[in-house]
Design a protein around this nucleic acid. Sequence first.
DNA 1: AACGTATATATAAAATACTTATATATATTT
DNA 2: AAATATATATAAGTATTTTATATATACGTT
Lengths: 117, 117
Amino acid sequence: MASNDLLKGTLKPIILKLLTENKRMYGYEITQSVKELSKGKIELTFGALYPILHKLEQDGAVITESEIINNRNRIYYSLTETGKSTAKEKIAELEEFVNTLRILLKPNYGLEYVLAR
Amino acid sequence: MASNDLLKGTLKPIILKLLTENKRMYGYEITQSVKELSKGKIELTFGALYPILHKLEQDGAVITESEIINNRNRIYYSLTETGKSTAKEKIAELEEFVNTLRILLKPNYGLEYVLAR
DNA sequence: AACGTATATATAAAATACTTATATATATTT
DNA sequence: AAATATATATAAGTATTTTATATATACGTT
């Protein structure tokens, strides 16, 4: 899926978006969802994921529930009320950013730029 | 314009896009273009800009021409042939990334995800 | 039975990219 | 005279992600 320095800063809002849509998810599930939804283009690594989840927990944005499934430990994450509003903000920011990028990438805006002067 | 960690990795392709559209530009002009085109939402700082431009020059992606305008030095940057193909690649990557983000942000994809299982 | 792959969480070191601060200098506006 | 705009440049600090590593169970294949 090529080099993605582009991800920086987008992972947190992406995770918050997933948690907004899915109520509760565990770490491994989140990485798989991102992979599926992005058609393999975004690879959310564990080294990136868990620090973000732990940070969200520290900040009170998510709460965890541990369950033993198939003899393996699973930690479910879900948004708190605080987390829901954080998510809303971060998702809105990312949406605005995506729209801004689309304007910058729009073909021939260079012409408009010249005409605007 | 709020906190933008989101920029990371996008600045280089944005600069390459501008140089693709405008043939030749100088540093200050690039920062102003980004500000205008993004309606003030993206602030390209000098500390970010010049290292990127110098890197592009080192890599042979751009060439420079110095001119004295209004008694001030101005350094124009333009893409080399190599730079044009680099630009094409990086811009395509950013476009793909933006499309991927749009899929992830699309409302209710959570439902589709559930249905797909 | 052994091997690889998938599932599952976790941390630390290293790399990268950007922000913030600072420096220098001229032109224009208030 | 002072502030703002124009113009380039570098260094220190910060933040975020990648890469590497650790641990452990389940399942499918040869």
